[in-house]
């Protein structure tokens, strides 16, 4: 009986083992492992589903609270909006599908509770999400300062684009010199809240995601070598 039938090719048998693998399965072992991992990622997307659901639920609740609780408006002159901060996180950390879902459902939720024409909030959110997602490799997305800057830009850009879209559609939104103050407040709010959103979702990933694997107990100097020593 040969030990080779059990996959043991000895210390110098790596090349022979790789050749056997290619004849039997068509690919060497590292490629087979990578293929299995990708297949597992498709079949068990627990963390991805959780991200989508958590993002949409948070957007749904945030829009409701923005309409139901009027606490900030007497002080700041404007109700803070969480959707731009959520879109920054979704675009930089998750998949493009999440960007589309948040733009569609978050925008429709906002329009259904406000006097906006339905569909007007989705396009600015989508534009923001696409721009950030396409450039996410160029952004230091793990740095709080970068997150704050992007949150500030998003907080100012989304309302500006929405008002521009409303004006181009022939509506008469209430704009004036006071809108500059409101835009500044929304930008500061975006800068403050966006790093918190990243932390929140980071905590969710830590709690519900797979634990990172350690180096293991294998030591090359303790390997039992078979065959002739």
């Amino acid at each position: 009986m040969s030990w080779k039938r059990f996959g043991c090719y000895g210390r110098n048998g790596a090349e022979e083992a790789g050749e056997v693998g290619r004849r039997r399965w068509g690919r060497p072992a590292p490629q087979r492992v990578a293929a299995w991992a990708a297949w597992l990622g498709k079949e068990v997307p627990v963390l991805r589903s959780l991200q989508i659901v958590a993002t949409l639920v948070l957007a749904w609740l945030a829009v409701f609270l923005q309409a139901a609780w009027d606490g900030f408006r007497p002080i700041l002159g404007v109700q803070p909006d969480l959707l731009p901060a959520l879109m920054v996180h979704t675009a930089l950390r998750t998949h493009l599908v999440n960007v589309f879902l948040l733009a569609a459902l978050g925008g429709l939720a906002m329009d259904s509770l406000s006097a906006n024409p339905v569909g007007v909030t989705s396009l600015p959110l989508l534009a923001l999400g696409l721009v950030l997602h396409m450039r996410k490799e160029l952004v230091l997305r793990d740095q709080p300062f970068a997150q704050a800057v992007l949150g500030a830009l998003a907080g100012a850009a989304v309302p500006t684009l929405t008002v521009g879209l409303l004006l181009s559609l022939g509506h008469e939104p209430l704009v004036g010199w006071g809108s500059l103050w409101q835009g500044a407040v929304l930008a500061v709010w975006g800068a403050a809240v966006t790093p918190l959103v990243f932390r929140l979702f980071g905590a969710l990933e830590h709690w519900f995601g797979a634990a990172p694997t350690g180096p293991g107990s294998f030591r090359p100097d303790r390997e039992i070598r078979r065959g002739r020593v």
Binding site: A67, D70, Q79, M110, N116, L166, L174
Partner: peptide, 14 residues
Amino acid sequence: VTLREPTPWWRSFT
């Protein structure tokens, strides 16, 4: 009154 306008460019409530 149940909900107020969440955007700053309209004046309305529900």
